[in-house]
Design a protein around this nucleic acid. Structure first.
Lengths: 236, 236
DNA sequence: TGTACATCAGTGAACGCGCGTTCACTGATGTAC
DNA sequence: TGTACATCAGTGAACGCGCGTTCACTGATGTAC
């Protein structure tokens, strides 16, 4: 079974205290917005009015902290990315240490993928918020190294190279293959494959990651077949 | 370069003529709704009022043909699935015939994947509509064999087995790995990887499909490594 | 330590918008005789 | 072939809703002297 998730949105709001009337309205609004996304099923539930209502404040008050709705949504997206990163990091740190470096690196890759998928499954509303088109996210936020789900994917691949399992030549663009496999499964299980039983879902996840693992090592096709497949993909 | 897409939404509306006032209002509304999704960037642009406006009819008139907004959205989703299937079929039929059956089957797999991705890229609004949570789609529509993008993925895998390239044991759940890889890339290129240049996107697609091809054949890992990876994915 | 004043966080009322949906209706089409 | 009537597709006006956003304001906090 994939690890359970128990996310306390409130734990974040301690940061950045303001000593004015409410004390920390900006943060409180973001937290409320994240809860709306979490409970309401996604970013469309994030509105200035609803967040203000939740905090017990006038909608106008929100405009002291956000220029407009898009900024609140962007901040909520940031928060969701943060929570997703924390969840993945927790999954990573849960692992028992392994001596063999290759086994350790493969294990970390698996843990990162597992964390990505279990977050998506446990918190669909937050997961959708991470990937909503709306909500401008600050550049610096996307490039934070800690708690950034995407960076964690990259790092796990780099480790595979460092440890000698993945040939440097095969490292190129491997992050897209990895990210797409994991992200695609997350989306499908929250979409057309929602009907799958938990057992089938788990089995498909294992199968998907094994396929990826085999595929990254790139020994499954003859050179001839590989050339053909590549040409076909390019549209001949 | 991936094949270009030129979709004429109007070509569909000839079916199911009604001889009353408008003649074919139901169909006209669906077509208008699909155009709204196409131009407006997705399913949120599909509203009863906007579709009626587009056709030049009162919103109330739409209620003669759809019980509510969700039904219109469902019909629009159906239409989008149909268009996506047509696009993929066209991609498939564009291929030159290949004698060697294994090469032919691999080529068809690639063409199906390419069609999926080029549709998503050329018609993001319609693609998003296919995968929107809202809009109840009739069971029978999802299970149509012709023009169903998902069936086409399955068929291409079955062919790989029939032709002797893919071991029957490796066929199981391979559709999820294939679908997820392709779907994940489509989503990421329409999301966080939107910034990728066309060249990088193309290269990533080829790499992703090659990884999948290698992976399905499952020769890249030792039995020991595979076991470990599987256990890790299951959460130990 | 105490007062005067500037600063600024939050209020309350209001706006215009597009939406889904309902009502009683009009007017064109199809059909029975 | 012609008329009377039933059927039903589409009209026009209206409703209530929640939204984003703006306005002039109130009242608490922080600071200069």
């Amino acid at each position: 079974m994939l690890a359970g998730v128990n996310i306390g949105l409130m734990e974040i709001s301690a940061a950045e205290k303001r000593a004015y009337h409410h004390g920390d309205l900006r943060n409180a609004l973001i937290t409320a917005a994240a809860e709306l996304a979490q409970k309401g099923g996604g970013p469309t539930s994030v509105t200035i009015r609803a967040a203000a209502r939740e905090v017990g404040v006038t909608p106008t008050a929100a405009y002291r902290h956000f220029a407009n709705h898009d900024e609140l949504l962007g901040a909520t997206k940031d928060r969701a990315i943060e929570l997703m990163g924390e969840h993945m990091r927790a999954e990573l740190e849960k692992r028992k240490p392994v001596d063999d470096p290759v086994r350790a690196a493969l294990g970390r890759l698996a843990a990162v993928g597992r964390g990505y998928l279990s977050f998506a499954h446990a918190e669909p509303g937050l997961f959708r918020t991470v990937f909503t088109a709306g909500g401008t996210v600050l550049e610096e936020d996307m490039q934070r190294e800690d708690d950034n789900p995407f960076q964690m994917l990259l790092v796990s691949l780099d480790e595979l190279v460092a440890v000698g399992h993945l040939a440097p030549a095969n490292r190129e663009l491997a992050e897209v293959a990895l990210w797409a496999t994991v992200h695609g499964m997350a989306m499908l299980f929250d979409g057309p494959l929602r009907v799958l039983s938990e057992e089938l879902r788990e089995a498909a996840i294992v199968r998907g990651m094994l396929t990826l693992g085999h595929g990254l090592a790139a020994n499954g096709l003859t050179a001839d077949q590989e050339k053909l497949l590549a040409e076909e993909m390019r549209g001949r």
